[in-house]
Amino acid sequence: MSRDSTVADAGGRVVGDFRIIERTKKVPGPQERTFERGLGIVTPLAFVLLWEFAARAGWIDLRFFPAPSAVLSETWRLLRAGDLVAHIGASLSRVTVGFLVGAVPAVGIGMAMGLNRYIRAALQPMIDATYPIPKIAILPLVLLVFGLGESGKYAILAIGVFFQVVITTAAGVAAIDRVYFDVARTFGVGRLALARTVVLPGALPVIFAGMRLGIGTALLLVIAAEMVAAKSGLGFLIWQSWQLFAVEEMYAGLMTISLTGLTIFQLLRALETRMLRWRPINVQ
């Protein structure tokens, strides 16, 4: 956008002809945001429709890629029979117990490590050395020690969650600005009050990030553990459907895991938003 004009100096004398360039503003309207959100729904819907069409037209092998409608009706059947609810319940209770048993001590120990250099010096090398072991690799050992009952599943989940949360908690505490500790010290704050008013709230954003990682690990491990050592749960359902070549059931299991995981993450996010109300919105 431009036009031609003469330009005058401070004394009012014309100094010449210029092309006047006008800077224009562009404000993204609300309809653009609606469009963005709509894209996120339309794209997967189109993909499912294409899949359905391809299945009906015989373009894809139904033995491996059953039609979405067939998967849905199989899911509905499993739901009505009560099997699916039982499997979800079994997996969820394992994730819940395993997560709590792993995460609660991890936050405590992580905080102690972040606060006390001797505790950190004592534990950090051990954690660093054992952290890289894929937790699935120690599943047989855990099953050997704890047996095939529920405690074995709890144990492997707790171990996986513990590592994620302990490392992030210690890092979160270490990253708290020193000035906040100084403020507390100038008011003569004791250890317990320091932990409650400075350390825990200060490290909480990072602890939540660790818990998200921990939930991811817990979901992975619960499925793995149920595949090899359980008679219930979504992992068992999928493994069994493979053995019985019930592909639609397998897809129903996969879809359920996806939705369950999504729900857990949303709940954690809601909890996080609620507990971290003090944070600037754009960080969340």
């Binding site: 000035v179 906040y180 100084d182 403020v183 709230p201 003090w278």
Partner: peptide
């Protein structure tokens, strides 16, 4: 003490 840098607890 009043500190030089931002020292209010963000939480």
């Amino acid at each position: 003490m009043v500190f030089q840098e931002q020292s209010n607890f963000p939480w």
